[in-house]
Amino acid sequence: MNKRRITIVSVLAMAMIFLSGCGFPGLSSSSDDTIRIAALNTTEQQILASMDQQMIEHYTDLHVTIISNLGSSNVSFEAMKRGDADMSAARYDGTDLTTILGKTSSGNPKTDSETVKKAFQKKYGFTYLPSYGFADTYAWMVTQATAKKYNLNTVSDMKTHASELSVGLDQTWMKRSGDGYPAFQKKYNFSFGTASPMQIGLVYDAVSAGKMDAVLGYSTDGRISSYNLKLLKDDQNFFPPYYAYPVATTKILKEHPELIKVLSKLSGKISVSTMQKLNYQADDELKEPSVVAKEFLQKHNYFEGSND
């Protein structure tokens, strides 16, 4: 009996060591040469994460695993802070300024971006790598017919009809502090008749099908042009610019300095219209983000020779 108990305890102990230690073969869960990239549940983030992954695996011997489907940039931030992830596929400086740092925009995008980069380096040990080159921002959008009906050109134009409008919003934007709905109501001084939170990916269809009068979506979504939606101008400059950057922990960059060089090759290579096209391929042409990323990188020969 005693012998058996020892066996059991040792088996349990072995299992625990197995669990906590070396990781699982085939899953690149947690070994020294694995880079873990956090990606949100948006198409854009998943395409960028796949690009980072394929660039790293193309140029180095490192393995990459993507922690995908995270619900908001808060989650990917926490994942990096806790050490669950080594980098974020894309962070948007405007979002980090208002939600993570809790500051308001200075009105000057350059200053804002510098503030975020410095604070992230100093406070959290995260390094903002060079930007992909495009800015994504929240944008109010309506169909051309709705725009005509209510004579809408700017966000402020919605004020007079706000109580009759039903709008679709990103679930997380509803509640988030900084640049979320509560702050929006204060700045623009109106609220909507009905505001329905929904999956961000579904807002474009909802507005073009007439289920919603207006929706808050991402300016880089490919469906804006394919559905001929009208973007309303953010006349109060409520949404700061959200330039997209890969962000890595300074720790992982010290361990693998080659990452900086590899990821810098993507710097400035993705314009807004490129991103819209890539997003469109994944959202409307039945291609997985990783496939979209692969085709894009192969077409550009993995940006061989750039930034060397």
Partner: peptide, 19 residues
Amino acid sequence: SFVGSGGLGDIIIRGTNAT
């Protein structure tokens, strides 16, 4: 897939988000 582990759930979730 909701906590980022990957697998076929990723495809399902993406399907619920796509047009």
